[in-house]
Design a protein around this nucleic acid. Structure first.
Lengths: 339, 339
DNA sequence: GTTTACAAAGGTATCGTTACCATGATTAAG
DNA sequence: CTTAATCATGGTAACGATACCTTTGTAAAC
């Protein structure tokens, strides 16, 4: 591909300026704040830029202005649909605004997250978006020192560090469990993800336990199973749960992925849902309304989380308030037929 | 968060140099090619960098060296698990090598892809990874002019432009259809995605048609339905297909997402799979082995695609060959119980 | 012991843009 | 009609790193 002609120095602002018969700085202005140059020159500059196929060198601009027009995003995993969707939505909002996304996945490891933050900070991102509120002290310190706006998404803490956009996973899990109780289920098992470094899952588990407690119910003996969020683990977890607890009448899965695994296993084992066993999930992934029976679950406004997070960043970057604040987007219990 | 003390000029290489009692250039070398400085000074520099919490300014380095250590990746959509997985794998390989990923989604639009390429090019990426081989002429020209290595993934063209890592979607679809024919199915319907700007899907459709033709079979009247890749569209497409073609005995879905939608609709309508209707998919997503019945499908080595693509980029960036070439990773027919 | 080779370290210029300040032109205010 | 205020434009320096070249020191070769 690369044709070897000459060193082919790339077209710079100076070249465009010469072509248009103006100063370099005017080209800069024409391209980044068009309303600050006269229509006449603006047109000339644009024509010249087009003619020379000028591509600005962002690195140079970043070096001088200390603004990279990059937003760094770190999620636990990109390969989970809920995070992929969030990223996609954010990307769609940042793009037209001229910002690009630097994406990393921590694999639920705080060390890896810290290492990513360190690496990303070297690119002077204009903002950083992290998942959850659980981060290493160094991570937080690094970001504070760099004076980079921080938006934490997906879960709501007691005290915000900076901006937070999410829902109360505790409240949502509690509400869902209450529904189960209200419907008359009494022996409710829990299937969730590992709690390490995952405050979303941890809060869901707590919300579940809180609902049982306030109803005077107990968590069944060995009624809690935790496995990574994969379909097959839902299936396995159910088997495990049932082998320990034959008279379970309901299962709360802290993620639809697990819940769907549970439903599939029920189908395999011929367990009728919800007659023999009620199953509820969390997230409301696309598939949840197509399972049989359709899954009762908690709808998390995940696109809205992405959208608001991105909008908050943009607002902040154009001079918005820097006060720490929590944006609670709320959840919704979606009753379908699995409970 | 941002504490307003003083302008807090950030720590530069010069500061580290002063602290370590060496020249700035030595710091540069110590950090980027440690084996080119004496162990003694290396240690001193590292200590100084640590003490001052030095963070390199990549923009400055990029400006000077014309190397950004950024790789741009454009996929049609991030929110589809197969692309999310590919991205995750690539990200995992690039990260330890010191490269970061700039990710964009084109929404299956060539114009949007072109616009993304234009925007990304301004960041002087060290390589660009695109999905499929169908791109606008300008896109290709832009990349060629910028002399940026290009890797195209997921599908294999006749003539490679640069590096290609993928599978033959044509061959795979053909092989799958042949299997259906070999098993005795004769009235085979097709459910696929829209073909515009999607050479993967297009080649699958062609492969399907080719297999029927070589067996002397015909595509059933109105036996082809195309809808965006969503579960619900699989369900809808099946209904549509069946209403036009009551004696269909098999359905080839060009994506597991659609196939799973089909399976769910079969369950709803009480159609026995595979006895009344065989269903096969394409991709082998995680869920495919958990449906009931488990889905017969084409396994696409999508993690391997991501891995190889990333490795090829790294190889190329450390001086590897620049000859255009195709890396065909092959596919596998996974026979489960849905056909 | 002298010459050659090579490694280690430093000096300086430079990448391409934008911040900052200055200038001249135009308009508004008195 | 003068003065101030505002706008459009330009000149220059600087952001922080690395490429390139030079210098110095040490080991190898004869």
């Amino acid at each position: 591909m690369a044709r070897k002609t000459e060193p082919s120095r790339s077209v710079t602002m100076r070249d465009v300026a010469a072509e248009a018969g103006v100063a370099a700085i005017t080209v800069s202005r024409a391209l980044s704040s068009p309303d600050r140059v006269s229509p006449h020159l603006l047109e000339k500059v644009q024509a010249a830029a087009k003619k020379l196929q000028y591509t600005p060198n962002i690195a140079a601009g970043t070096l001088r202005s200390q603004k990279s027009r990059i937003v760094a995003v770190i999620v636990p995993t990109i390969a989970h649909s809920i995070f992929a969707e969030t990223i996609q939505v954010m990307s769609g909002i940042f793009r037209p605004a001229g910002y690009h996304l630097l994406i990393g996945h921590s694999g639920y490891s705080l060390e890896e997250e810290e290492s990513l933050v360190t690496a990303f900070l070297a690119r002077k991102p204009d903002a950083i978006i992290l998942t959850g509120y659980t981060h290493s002290a160094t991570t937080i310190d690094l970001i504070a020192r760099a004076e980079v706006p921080l938006v934490e998404i997906w879960n709501i803490p007691d005290e915000p560090r900076d901006t937070v956009v999410g829902i109360s996973n505790f409240d949502a899990a509690q509400a869902m469990t209450r529904l189960l109780i209200r419907k008359g289920y009494r022996k409710i098992g829990y299937i969730g993800g590992p709690r390490e470094n995952n405050d979303r899952v941890e809060q869901r588990e707590r919300g579940f336990a809180a609902a049982l407690q306030e109803a005077g119910l107990e968590v069944p003996e060995r009624g809690i199973v935790r496995k990574p969020l994969e379909f097959e683990n839902g299936a396995r977890a159910l088997t495990e749960l049932l082998s320990q607890n034959s008279e379970l009448d309901a299962v709360f899965a802290a993620s639809d992925i697990l819940a769907i695994g549970v439903l599939m296993e029920c189908q395999n084992q011929g367990i009728r849902v919800p007659e023999q066993l009620a199953v509820v999930g969390f997230d409301d992934v696309g598939l949840a309304s197509y399972t049989s029976p359709p899954l009762t679950t908690v709808r998390v406004p995940r696109e809205e989380i992405g959208r608001r997070a991105a909008q908050e960043v943009l607002k902040r970057l154009s001079g918005g308030s820097t006060e720490p604040r929590i944006i609670d987007l709320g959840f919704e219990i979606i009753e379908r037929r699995s409970a």
